[in-house]
Design a protein around this nucleic acid. Structure first.
Lengths: 138, 138
DNA sequence: CCCGCATATGAGAACCGTTGTCGAACGAGG
DNA sequence: CCTCGTTCGACAACGGTTCTCATATGCGGG
């Protein structure tokens, strides 16, 4: 049986006030900062439980860190600046349809997908960030 | 300057004999088993270098482990079975164009993207893998 | 309203993939 | 060959995540 505890409620509440993706560690820090301290293990358990219940969406960074966010009803993706990290939410219904259709054509069901777009934003280019051909910032 | 050493050659060679995605640790174990021992750090460095040179493709599992495989020259994405890990390469020129155009509309340059599609393949469904709404296999 | 007990918590350790360190080995151009 | 900068590799360190286990606490039944 699943219990509704102070801690679980607190973790869920954090995501109500937050846009975008956040790590378990960040949630833990925010709770601690708010004086509503919750153990780190508990935060991990809570975000995992929420993700399993479909209340949170999760992605993994290149560094292998898991990030979560409130699952918005509208599905969208992220356009991320490699240099300053600024994020723009973009929606692409065509991409969704393409992904679902492609998967079904190969006999796959329960289809989901992850899509992230990376680039250098106008401001960072203007600021003279020299970027190599591989997008590596020296 | 980049040197061609026994170790780098050995790592690259491993991927010639292998289909699909494999972890650095697995490569290390295979080399060791073949008697052609290479240090673990070296394997990590080698796969990273190969990935940067575009010779290997990399993805990250849900568990945060990095997997690599020989990359075909054509840009493509992966359709991965959540249950058995089988991968299918899929190409979607429309998606590429959409991603580039969307990024440019927001003033981003040097655009790249990552896209992975997950689902349950026909065989795994037939094998009776009961899959929850979130794709969690019990 | 209270009990019993299964479930949840939390501090810390363990875990595991990955990355850093540094002296030794080695490849390539001279 | 020789020299020198690159690479190797054993090992330690790191960071995110998961496990452990004693303790605390919802919650349904009495």
């Amino acid at each position: 049986m699943v219990r509704t505890t102070r801690q679980r409620t607190a973790v869920a509440a954090i995501f109500d006030d937050l846009e975008g993706f956040h790590s378990a560690q960040e949630v833990h820090a925010r709770l601690r900062a708010a004086g509503d301290s919750v153990g780190l293990s508990t935060v991990y358990r809570a975000v995992q439980a929420l993700a399993e219940d479909g209340e949170l969406d999760s992605i993994r960074t290149d560094a292998g860190e898991a990030l979560y966010r409130r699952c918005s009803t509208r599905h969208h993706h992220h356009l991320v600046c490699r240099s300053c990290g600024r994020t723009v939410e973009v929606a692409g219904p065509a991409v969704e349809r393409w992904a679902d259709r492609t998967a079904e054509e190969h006999g796959f069901a329960d289809v989901s997908h992850t899509l992230e777009i990376f680039g250098t934003c106008a401001e960072c280019r203007a600021a003279g960030a020299t970027v190599g051909p591989d997008g590596i910032v020296p």
